[in-house]
Amino acid sequence: MKKRAIFVWILLCCIACKKGGSGQQNTDNGNTPPITNPTTAFFAKGADVSWLSQMEASGYKFYNAGGMQQDCMQLLKDKGMNAIRLRVWVNPADGWCNMADVVTKAKRATALGMKIMIDLHYSDSWADPGKQTKPAAWSSQNFATLQTTVHDYTQSVMNTLKTNGITPDWVQVGNETNDGMLWDDGRASINMANFAKLINAGYQGVKDVSNTTQVIVHISNGYDNSLFRWLFDGLKNNGAKWDIIGMSLYPTASNWQNYNTQCLANMNDMIARYGKPVMICETGFAANDATTAKAFLSDLIGKIKSISNSNGLGVFYWEPEAYNWMGYGLGAFDNNGKPTIALDAFAN
């Protein structure tokens, strides 16, 4: 009996090893949705506050509901936010959103215990669906050199942050890249393969410094499933790598319910189709309709939290602190520098 028991024990060990640790490479093709623990998964409730340092330098101040002046990031944290998103421009003419400015803001957020998302525009100014202009210093490079530059620049950004004690949880490789980036070389509708190579160059630049940082490919119109399928099918078919699918969503009072429903359906399709989690990297609503804004945000957050296996990773509000600033009307502070009730949606 003793010999038989030893034989059975050895047999069971062999079976366990075969199932769990054969030493072979993981052959997962990336089509299986990631499984996380819903009880412990981190849900990002964040804000892009890239304008903040410029606003403060212009004399803007921020106040809590009682009228007491307070640090803006602390106000956002007190409203339930736990993450900050910051855009990075390569060589901005006025210096705002360059690396020094980004490091300063990232240090402030990190000191408050907030997680960091870095949004690489790969431009000297705004990059969005309507424009993806190369930085002036990169404009004459051939495509092979451009790939190397994207990698090296991304790695440099990561190293600068690391030197300052900051490891971002997420990095966007491009901003609202509906038709690619670094036009015309990386314009997706002209050359999807080039766009995929640029994504991979940025992806590797991030991972070379921090393998734990999640890389996001981000496009706008989160309700538009056909756009997302076209772009991500193209990237997948050309061997692009990414960890998270990022979306923007900017509804109005008349369509927010439909947008939220369509966005949730799109998110679930992205997870099933590509095996990657999803996140709202940007959203906003009319600042002068805070009641509806709160209803929209509460509904959106609830829908994303309902996604199975915690594959809905979070929501970032774009520049909520902007009041009486640059003509922007989709913030979430009133004209006296106080948060509106819209931000109460982030409390839970």
Rank of each mutant, 00 (worst) to 15 (best):
T212P: 10
T292I: 12
V150I: 06
S254G: 10
N255K: 02
D243R: 04
A201R: 01
N164D: 00
L297P: 08
A57N: 15
L182H: 05
S220V: 04
M99G: 12
P168Q: 13
E56R: 15
P339T: 10
Y223R: 13
G312R: 00
T104A: 13
P320C: 05
W89P: 05
P129V: 06
K3P: 10
N288D: 15
Y122C: 05
V315C: 00
Y203V: 04
I304W: 00
N348Y: 12
T145I: 11
T27I: 13
V315W: 02
A93M: 12
F333Q: 09
D48S: 03
M247G: 07
S140A: 06
L249K: 03
M73V: 12
T39S: 15
N142A: 10
M73R: 14
I10C: 13
T167P: 00
Q70K: 13
F296L: 01
A290N: 11
K107A: 08
K77C: 04
T340R: 05
K276S: 00
G222W: 06
V8P: 12
A342H: 09
N335D: 14
P38N: 07
A41C: 01
G66E: 08
P33S: 03
G20S: 14
L249F: 01
N29I: 07
F7H: 09
R87N: 13
T291K: 11
K2E: 15
A253D: 10
I199M: 11
D344I: 00
W325V: 07
